[in-house]
Design a protein around this nucleic acid. Structure first.
Lengths: 297, 297
DNA sequence: ACTGTTTACGGAGACCGTAAGTATC
DNA sequence: GATACTTACGGTCTCCGTAAACAGT
């Protein structure tokens, strides 16, 4: 089994089409067809249903492994490319909820020392930030998610990248002021499973463990999905009564029409981590250190 | 970059020889040479020093990634092979410190229900148990290691295998009775960094995180290394005054000449987990459940 | 001089593209 | 009948083995 075949399988599963996968990868659809056929011969069972193109259970599982394998391969190649290089440029991916003040302060320190440094900050959701890191588009990525206190995010495989915790902030439920639940001092998420949540996968949704996700972020009826990355927009949706949102304390600020209530149980926090390639060097390393010093975690 | 090249690189790094790697993989050494040359051309830098054959920093890093990639590939293939198969046979790998009474009791339940079941138990160190699982030699693996309470072992990549915690047992330092430290009620590992530890990598050594490993299990002067898997032998070495050993409470039993002292700080435990392929089925699943019920974790 | 890696070269085979075939909507 | 995947077939190029050259020990 070679990586080329895995890449093709993954692309077919993602797009649901041999033709689309072929054009994305620069092959003809005939080549893709042959590669999939070869893979199926090697593992001795069908991997895809045709017409429509959907993965079989075996195909789904293999595609999941393939995604991890190819991600690691990309990371390995990025690491080798940047090995021992001293950067004059720093590209950071940050998700909107990932403690912007922390990043801003650390960057200020860094630019004071090294004024010539070219800095680029990009707003990306956590999953996309990891892909950007693996693709060499950024040097560092700030990622966030919800976990139990003290537990790392379940975002990347152990050892794939270097991760350092930056902050843990307790959670609040944001709801429209005047909401029936507005009087409570704390709220338990268990009682809100069937509430009309606004799911915002680009805002910390990607890092929630599958068990948490299924328990506390149901895609149940009546829920609204916000795919943007702007917190203000999300708050406006909440204020307008479209539903509840789970946010780190402080993200609501003094937004109008919003009331924030602390989460009582379960004991979860919004955690921010910074990720870099394991061979991170130069300026990226300095920023990592600066953030680590500030974070006190 | 294809998996064939990665496999060759890894084997060359492991054996330190093109010739040996070739014979292990069923190639001629010429083929290996060409594959390595191709890889070096692709990444644009040398991966190996020749004569003697040792990895460059880049080669070392790539080999580490390759090991993970190939392990995952093996696991994926095993999963597909066993998908939907109901086993009449159960092969379990267990490390000596991984709660043998738990396994024994669970197996007794299982054989009571299914007397025809063919059971094989193999004693393997945790890293070898994982390889055996990936190679299809066993269906389940009990693994152990030292972590902070409540934290999973850092043995495998997230999502590679299904892991369930079985037990967490506090640690003791085993020393020869009559040892100068024998009077203490508890011991702090920080004060014992330079003590003559007996390192036993096959007995829970593999699962200790690198940071713990470097802090509390130094390969400093005077230390002794036991590569076997038999606890009694290790205890005999301790009793004979060859050094200290870090063990889960209870492993010493009433061994003669041994005195066990609880570890005061840091707050670490000996943790046992059970691993299976993510698609584990049939009898293996039953045993998993039986163990999970008993473990109360 | 011997052991072990690199280079040269040739053949077998993998792999992809073109194009025709086939099944499903 | 159109769209989308499969199969057939041929050319190219990769890849490995044999064998000779080469470099350390």
């Amino acid at each position: 089994v070679e990586t080329r075949d895995l890449r093709s399988l993954l692309e077919v599963v993602r797009t649901g089409s041999f033709t689309a996968a072929a054009s994305h990868l620069g092959y003809t659809q005939s080549a893709i067809s042959q590669q999939i056929a070869s893979l199926e011969a090697q593992v001795g069972r069908p991997l895809l249903h045709r017409r429509p193109v959907r993965p079989t259970p075996a195909g789904q599982r293999l595609a999941e492994h393939a995604a991890r394998i190819l991600l690691r391969l990309d990371v390995a190649q990025q690491e080798l490319e940047h090995l021992g290089r001293t950067a004059l440029q720093l590209r950071v991916a940050a998700c909107p909820l990932a403690g912007p003040h922390l990043l801003a302060a650390a960057l200020r320190d860094l630019r004071a020392v090294n004024p010539a440094l070219q800095v680029t900050v990009t707003a990306l959701s956590s999953p996309r930030a990891i892909e950007a890191l693996a693709g060499g588009e950024v040097d560092l990525a700030m990622v966030d998610g919800v976990t139990a206190p003290g537990n790392p995010l379940e975002l990347v495989e152990a050892g794939l990248m270097r991760a350092a915790p930056l902050a843990e902030i307790s959670l609040v439920v944001a709801l429209a002021s005047g909401h029936a639940l507005g009087g409570r001092a704390t709220l338990d998420l268990e009682t809100l499973v069937d509430a009309p949540w606004i799911t915002a996968p680009a805002l910390a949704g990607g890092a929630v463990g599958p068990d948490l996700l299924s328990g506390y972020r149901p895609s149940s009826s009546g829920s609204l999905r916000y795919e943007g990355t702007d917190v203000m927009t999300l708050l406006a949706l909440v204020a307008a009564g479209h539903g509840l949102a789970l946010l780190p304390m402080g993200a609501c600020g003094s937004a109008p029409g919003i009331h924030a209530i602390a989460v009582g149980s379960p004991d979860l926090v919004h955690r921010t981590e910074i990720l870099g390639l394991s061979t991170v060097s130069g300026v990226a390393l300095q920023l990592l250190e600066a953030l680590r010093v500030r974070s006190e975690l």
